[in-house]
Design a protein around this nucleic acid. Structure first.
Length: 864
RNA sequence: GGGUGCGUAGCUCAGUGGGAGAGCAUCCGCCUUACAAGCGGAGGGUCGCAGGUUCGAAACCUGCCGCGCCCA
């Protein structure tokens, strides 16, 4: 097969992915008797497209599942999307708005129909992008949270929770987005430190006045009390009295509450139970009325001159009015404080008193914590379990109702006489006069939390569920720990009778730029993985991400590093090309060690070590280490040394060349298999060219062959490498052109067991045998008995050589001094383990021998 | 404020009791017939600071300084 000199990524990727699909390489079989390995994709939004964070998450998952597939597991990686209630509804509402319509113009049914239409036309762009990345998901099992089956799962679990009194409806302060016009859960609110203002306002008059500080002056219209700390002497006399609330003329009580911080501001706070979660709690404790003064859009509803003003217009207006009355005693601007924003649209969240459905999380969260504490679920890396516990141990009840139309409608009907009936799947909803269904839908996360089993057919007892649940690993970013993991754990344990949804939670970090900065549109440092795939290839993109992926750690990337990854793919391409051009083969048995040269035995020994270590590292989610190991083995050992050493052998022909062709074929065969999980495309293209087989995707994962471990060959080739490296170093120091061959005498090779390699050393170090007029101009003391005498035809740069030797001498002297100091220390010799002491003794002897040789070389140089 | 990490070469990061490492960047020399997306060579670090434990600390302990993330 003819291969061009550069890897044509784009063409190969398209062809290979199509071939995998047509071969059914990713399809899992529930009837198989192989052990299962299951992952469900953390479902991306139907509105979403593939960003660099997905690319990392998917690269890791794909690497895991591809390896397991090669290991003989019945591997299922299940794809799909969630319906992203708020985001999707926003998209369609914007489309309608462009036509001057609102969803209310269409009505609920027609609107939902319109959303489905949008999904069919424009939703799920990410699925095609996943193919470009090479995701080996089972497309026949693609799921969507709004599918009939998954919707049935939602209704089933809601009914179960309802019957178990684990969901309830209550009037609470919730996070409200005045733009999306819906409730949000705590985790859909993002806090940031924003510039605001802190205004101190005097309530009441004269002796009976009290100053409160607030960042939200506009809510004072809804104040129903002022609170102070019970032990605060300054205000003790006012507790129990009333003060006049400015602008309204209302009189409100001063109450004592231990949750007031006497050190903050004046030590007195205004209490607005309808518009602040803390105030709501104070209100409950003191039986205060709640006065709502903002509507669902954040517009003032209180009677008076401020009615109709938006909250952000009302704030300065009210402060101005107060100032006019002389009631503003202090103003601090800017005042930086934490402000919550809607994670979907960044609008400032408004705490709002409203009637919503909640999940009673306490028992569910406790079970979710226990599953990790007792080891049924392992979090990797284990350090991050602390974060998980911090979350599940302090979980607030989860607000699950959303004032949207796109989503799973809450299956609760309200009757004319205040009846509340939850309807399970297959049950007939109550009908008749006065019965109506709850208008709200459930949080998207409610259905996502069922994903690990709803996608496998639950609540039906399907073969998929039996075979593939629980899933093996959930891979996600630590920033999503609270989103996916905690919720999936709670519902998985609850629905599946205590069986956790996954055995392992493997967490990675976030992708960052080359300076470790978070990517953001405002920083202008966002990387589009599709752009990288176009320019450098999917494998280069994946390798860049995987090579930076330490467990739980952030992954900095840059275009330069991706170029490096592309270079690596190209290196593999060219070394395989070399191998094919030179007749490398995978046919027939690998010759036994006894029939191989020490060079062949060396690379095979290294290979066994690499197979074992790479396997361990993949198993431990140490992708960065596995990639680094394979990168260096491929580039340093195989390309830079083995291939260079093989060239003369291959050129010479004969049985030795025959064996080397077989060994080279074998090494590449296994190397490509080992790399396939991370860089599937280039490895498949090369492996199929090398082996003639259909695909490496279903080839066997390499296992170490102990019989090829050969420490003696490794030591021998290590000595050979030292000889060559020393010569190269000398040549570089002396400015000898790479192409120039230098006559040299190799001394002491036999003693070092390297006499068989003289030809190889001469070939790759570019040394000619000494001729009749040979004159040693320089002598390199390499190691042990080995030295190299070179004839530089009188052109030796004595100063450069002297500098080189002096440097070596300094290294040796330092080593000698350090070792002697240790060995001269009685405490060290007495207390350190014998093996350490022996090691130091060996090092000392070696350094002393080096020093002697270097001194001799210097003396020779002086004579010359 | 509570929690939780981090500080090692110019940059990004491994290393977690016993000879300071990698990638990229830098410098020098090369188209040496697989690969210039390449080859060979080199330089570069008081391991944040200060104490302590230890025969021995980049690693363990304490404090300090600086940075990050999550939660409030």
């Amino acid at each position: 097969m003819e291969l061009p000199s550069q890897y044509p990524a784009g063409e190969v990727e398209q062809r290979r992915y199509a071939a995998w699909l047509s071969a059914g390489a990713f399809a899992a079989d529930a009837a198989s008797d192989r052990p299962p390995f299951t992952m469900v994709i953390p479902p991306p939004n139907v509105t979403g497209s593939l960003h660099i964070g997905h690319a990392l998450d998917h690269t890791i998952q794909d690497a895991l599942v591809r390896r397991k597939r090669m290991q003989g597991f019945e591997a299922l990686w299940l794809p799909g999307m969630d319906h992203a209630g708020i985001a999707t509804q926003n998209v369609v509402e914007r489309q309608l708005a462009a036509q001057g319509l609102s969803r209310h113009d269409l009505g609920r049914e027609a609107f939902v129909e319109r959303v489905w239409q949008w999904k069919a036309e424009s939703g799920g762009a990410i699925l095609g992008q996943m193919k470009r990345l090479g995701d080996s998901v089972d497309w026949s099992r693609e799921r969507f949270t709004m599918d009939a089956g998954l919707s049935q799962a939602v209704q089933t679990i809601f009914k179960k929770l309802f019957d178990d009194d684990l969901v309830y409806r209550a009037e609470r302060i919730i996070n409200w987005c005045p733009r999306c016009l819906t409730a949000l859960s705590d985790i859909e609110v993002e806090h940031s430190d924003d510039d605001g203002e802190l205004v101190s306002i005097r309530y009441g008059e004269g002796e009976a006045s009290i100053v409160v500080a607030t960042t939200r002056a506009e809510t004072m219209l809804g104040d129903t009390a002022v609170a102070v700390h019970p032990d605060d002497e300054r205000y003790r006399h006012l507790v129990g009295t009333e003060v006049e609330l400015p602008l309204t003329g209302r009189r409100i009580p001063v109450v004592a509450d231990p949750h007031v911080d006497p050190a903050f501001g004046s030590g007195a706070v205004k209490v607005t139970p309808a518009h602040d979660p803390n105030d709501f709690e104070i209100g409950r404790r003191h039986d205060l009325p709640s006065l709502t003064v903002l509507d669902e859009r954040g517009v003032i509803t209180a009677h008076g001159p401020f009615e109709g003003l938006d909250r952000f217009e009302a704030r300065p207006a009210i402060v101005a009015a107060l100032r006019e009355q002389g009631r503003v005693v202090a103003e601090k601007r800017p005042y930086v404080h934490a402000v919550g924003h809607c994670s979907r649209c960044r609008t400032t969240v408004e705490p709002r008193l409203s009637l919503q459905w909640f999940v009673r999380t306490e028992p569910l969260a406790r079970a979710a914590g226990e599953a990790v504490r007792d080891g049924r679920v392992r979090i990797a890396p284990p350090e991050l379990a602390k974060r998980y516990f911090a979350w599940v141990d302090n979980m607030h009840d989860w607000c699950i109702s959303r004032q949207l139309w796109w989503g799973h409608r809450i299956p609760v009907w309200y009757g004319p006489d205040g009846e509340v009936r939850c309807v399970g799947p297959g049950e007939t909803p109550p009908s008749g006069e006065g019965w109506r269904q709850d208008e709200d839908v459930l949080d998207t996360w409610f259905s996502s939390a069922l994903w690990p089993f709803s996608t496998l057919g639950w609540p039906e007892k399907t073969p998929d569920l039996a075979k593939f649940y629980p899933t093996s690993v959930l891979v996600t970013g630590y920033d999503i720990l609270f989103f996916w993991v905690a919720r999936m754990m709670m519902f998985g344990l609850y629905a599946m009778e205590g069986t956790p949804p996954f055995a392992v939670v493997a967490l990675h970090g976030m992708v960052r730029d080359q300076h470790g900065k978070k990517m953001s549109k405002s920083s202008g440092n966002v990387i589009d993985p599709l752009d990288w795939i176009d320019r450098f290839g999917a494998d280069a993109t994946r390798f860049t991400l995987a090579r930076g992926a330490n467990p739980g750690g952030d992954v900095p990337v840059s275009e330069e590093w991706c170029q490096g990854s592309r270079a690596f793919c190209n290196k593999l391409w060219n070394v395989t090309r070399f191998a094919l051009l030179n007749g490398a083969t995978v046919a027939g048995a690998l010759p036994s060690p006894g029939a191989l040269s020490s060079v062949d035995r060396w690379i095979l020994s290294r290979l066994q070590d690499v197979v074992e270590q790479a396997d361990e590292q993949f198993e431990a989610y140490e992708f960065a280490k596995a990639c680094d190991l394979l990168y260096h083995f491929a580039w340093d050992d195989v390309c830079d040394w083995y291939v260079e050493l093989a060239k003369p052998v291959l050129a010479a022909g004969g049985p030795a060349a025959e064996a080397t062709r077989r060994v080279l074929g074998h090494v590449l065969d296994e190397l490509l298999r080992l790399l396939h999980p991370v860089i599937p495309f280039v490895t498949d293209e090369l492996w199929t060219a090398l082996t003639g087989s259909l695909t490496v995707a279903t080839a066997a994962w390499p296992i170490p062959a102990q019989s090829y471990l050969d420490p003696s060959a490794e030591a021998e080739i290590g000595r050979l490498q030292r000889v060559v490296t020393e010569v190269r170093r000398f040549r570089a120091d002396q400015g000898v052109k790479p192409a120039q061959r230098v006559p040299a005498a190799l001394v002491g090779l036999a003693e070092a067991g390297l006499d068989a390699h003289e030809g190889l050393i001469r070939a790759i170090a570019r040394l000619d045998p000494p001729g009749e007029d040979f004159t040693a101009g320089a002598s390199l003391a390499v190691t042990g008995a080995v030295s190299v005498e070179l004839d530089t035809r009188g052109t030796i740069d004595v100063a450069a050589e002297r500098a080189r030797l002096a440097k070596d001498a300094a290294v040796a002297e330092k080593e000698i001094a350090q070792c002697r100091a240790k060995l001269g220390n009685e405490a060290f010799v007495g207390k350190a383990p014998a093996e350490i002491v022996d090691k130091i003794k060996t090092r000392l002897a070696a350094a002393e021998a080096d020093a002697v040789r270097i001194a001799a070389a210097l003396a020779t140089l002086a004579d010359a």
